[in-house]
Amino acid sequence: MESGFPVFVVLAVVSILSAIGVVAFKSPVRSALSLVLAFFTLALLYFNLGAQLLGISQIMVYAGAIMVLFLFVIMMLKLGGHDKQPEKTDRRLYVAIPVSIAIAALVLTKFIEPMLHVPVSVIGDEYGTPQAIGPALFTTYVWPFEIASVLLLVGIVGSIMLAKKRF
């Protein structure tokens, strides 16, 4: 096992528990909070993988911006009210969980397990530094990058259009 493995185990347990929390909590605010925790542990997992720039972007983008927006909306709509009726659990539960577990088992045995027996190369820790990502982002991947920026612009315009009451 590699040296990062014990750290991985701890983080994996925390992230799975908080992911279950997202689904299981009745109150949307609690769901949002456990999702923040999940994103935070995912960022730490990225650090464990050596991808430091992406790990810190994960905290900045997801924990710092997206989840704050979620909390903002939940509070604006008062969805997290204390006197709200909890959602009903319905029969879909008894279908959804076995089917998902079956699919997961299928993927695990057919696609993931065979990788135990193939030769794998490991890249050094420096691949995740800004010095390594920056040149790649602005040379090889410059067109996808521009398209992503246009997409974000469209997203801004679209959300303003949706939020405006009258034109």
Binding site: M1, I112, V118, S121
Partner: peptide, 11 residues
């Protein structure tokens, strides 16, 4: 390395 990869994929 292969075990680490499988662990991450399983997660």
């Amino acid at each position: 390395a292969a075990q680490m990869l499988v662990a991450y994929l399983a997660l």
